[in-house]
Simulated scan of single mutants.
Amino acid sequence: MERPTLDEVARLAGVSKATASKVLNHRRYVSEDTRRRVEEAIGRLGYVPTTGPRDAASLRAVNVVFDTLANVYSAQVLSGIVGAARAQDVEVLVDALDPAAGDAGGPLSASWIRRLATHGRAGVIVVTAELTAGQRAQMRAAGLSVVVIDPLNPLDDEVVSVGSTNFAGGLQATRHLLDLGHRRIAYAGGVSVSAPSRERLQGYLSALSDAGVAADPGLVLEQGFSFRAGREMAATLFARERPPTAIFAGSDASALGVLEAARRQGLRIPDDLSVVGFDDTYSAFTTAPPLTTVRQPIEDMGRVALRTLLQQARGERPDSHHIQLATQLVVRESTTAPRPE
């Protein structure tokens, strides 16, 4: 099927090709009615400008879309992206998903993708959000490069993703608790469709299996990588007939929620409950006690994503379609041996 042309857009809108081009390039001296008709024609035809590898002059701006900006993880990812962009003299435009907007012009909507293409963006970095097959196809059609950091859903080899060795991190966290003597270890993870959370869960299950410890389905909860989710999952675990002696939280944010739930329950950390997080964000060493956690190089993930996006935009093949940076267990004061039964 042939791509719609600017001539077809102009014809459908009832304007000249030159006027349609002015609207497309956001030039002045076009009436609002004319601009509206051209934009409606672009939407109806699914028109996107013909694009190939960007030249150096057009690699001036990238868009970054977060699922949320209200956590420390997002701030550290953005820090890495901005640092790498500054070194490349590239502007970073930041947005966050708005579920209420849907396809009404919000980030990752069809109209939003078309606008980016007309503005000559180098591409899009999507952080911890779902990127659907339809959105991927629209970005390809628009000639936009895309890199996903910690993707919510599994991606095919046509999309570059950047993350950490989540399975190894889950393995490290759980082995640490097993080595301390814990056997009733819970996993408080992200939503069940989250690819990073599922990989961390598989590391947890593998460590238990290697140690000959049967996994208890009642100790595996998957609700979200947030303070509230961590607090609620911990409260559920504490209500079990045999509560855990240790909790491996799938993120530092949820680990903080676990610590708050333990405080409300009157439990002392780590004497009554050991807690391990995942991320090693700034908040991990400011908790009381400081949090044992799995460090993933969050700022490096942002830097690698930015460099890889520009590499694609120049028409170069990425070094890998699924980039994983190494994790490392950081032992602090929130874990110790369990109390004797």
Rank of each mutant, 00 (worst) to 15 (best):
A337M: 05
Q202L: 14
L24Q: 08
Y187A: 12
V147P: 06
P338V: 00
G315N: 04
V62E: 10
Y47I: 05
P151V: 07
G80L: 03
A326H: 11
V127Q: 01
E241G: 10
R175M: 06
R136E: 14
T286V: 15
T50Q: 09
N153F: 09
L144H: 01
F238K: 07
S145R: 04
T51K: 02
F66R: 02
S194Y: 02
V191S: 13
T165Q: 14
V220L: 14
V126H: 02
A261Y: 04
S58N: 05
L180K: 09
V191T: 13
A313M: 10
I269P: 13
L45K: 05
V160M: 05
P289H: 06
I125L: 14
V213K: 03
I185E: 04
T327G: 00
G315A: 03
G189S: 05
V220I: 15
G102A: 13
D150I: 00
T336C: 12
V304A: 01
T19P: 08
V220N: 13
A214Q: 11
A110D: 12
L97V: 09
A214G: 11
T68G: 01
T245G: 14
R198W: 00
G181W: 03
P340W: 00
G120V: 02
R140E: 13
A214N: 03
A85F: 12
V331A: 04
S194A: 15
A246I: 13
A41G: 02
D319V: 03
L259A: 13
A249H: 07
S192I: 01
A215Y: 00
A96V: 11
A195S: 12
R44P: 08
D67A: 11
A288H: 11
S79E: 15
G277K: 05
L155I: 06
L208C: 11
S109M: 08
A70N: 13
L309V: 00
N71Y: 03
G106F: 13
T287I: 08
A288F: 10
R332E: 09
P270F: 05
L45T: 08
F285R: 14
L273K: 08
L273A: 08
T308F: 02
G120P: 10
P4I: 07
A75I: 10
F285A: 13
Q223V: 03
R175A: 04
F285L: 01
R295A: 12
E130L: 07
F167W: 14
R200S: 08
Q135N: 04
Q296Y: 06
L116Q: 11
T51F: 02
G52Y: 06
V193R: 14
L208P: 15
Q202W: 12
R54I: 01
I125S: 02
V276M: 02
I185G: 06
G80W: 07
H26A: 13
T68M: 02
A173I: 09
